[in-house]
Design a binder for these strands. Sequence first.
DNA 1: TCCCAGGCTCAAC
DNA 2: GTTGAGCATGGG
Length: 308
Amino acid sequence: MEFKLNLSGVAFDLGHTIDSGQAFRWELRGEWWHGVLPAGAVKVRQEEDSLECVTSSEEVTPHYLREYFRIDDDLDRVYSAIMKDDHVAEAIQRYYGLRLIRQDTWECLVSFVVATNTNIPRIKGMISRVCERFGAKGDFLGVPYALFPTAEALAGASEEELKGCGLGYRARFVKAVAERVWSGGVDLGELRLMDYERAKDLLTDRLLGEKTLLGIGRKAADCILLFSCDKDSAFPIDVWMARVLAKYYPGVLGEELAEKLRSHASGATRLSGGDYERISAAMRGYFGEYAGYAQQYLFHDARMGRLE
DNA sequence: TCCCAGGCTCAAC
DNA sequence: GTTGAGCATGGG
């Protein structure tokens, strides 16, 4: 199936959107980005005023991709809301059109369990191998692809098989999460309907006495909520964001929290759970309802080498 | 080779 | 609620 999405008058930058560390199943081949979504494989290319799309399935409709790339978000509104200082302003200027992606929650959940304490290239490799090993196979333009595995498939996998995909100690967490989701112990669809705090409590297992969503802490939960549940105020803090915040936002956070961020960024200490929440909440208060958008621009800017 | 990476679990305070 | 140790792996 082939179609074009009309982008006239729409701020959208495909490359920065896909390559900003939100989604891990995209690959640039020549001038086309190739990806696999729950509904099928796609390749997309941005032109002047449109997005050229080729898809493997009738299910990957124009509407489907508009939802995935959040084309209907009013970026002008977002920008005016988060434009609080020169640093975001410069990042917005550099990556103008970068959008948050609306991913499948299950895929996003597993992705950010896998993403703990490793780097983005390796995350892509691990997820790719898990998909090839456990996902349903298809063929798109003569090239094989694999869908993201179902919760059933990963719950049925052994820890050893998952380790064989290079997951290391994360194998145990992925299996535990898959078992919990497959057994119906958590309804991922309802996360989108909850407010941020309640959804985060549910993801981090603060509602039940027992921790069964292993591998999902505060940061992973924030990523899942931001990238797949429309919680645009979520403000994940990883080591990159710790550096950014320590360097540019001590005035917002206060010297005490800024010092803790510096120590965390340098690897000397870690953020306590309380400090993580205090910092994240302060940035949410500063940037407002689209704080997660600000975070994504600052994160991408740092990874692009803008920190020095 | 060592260092680092979109951190988290677990035990002990 | 905090803190410290331990953790698998591969890219740079």
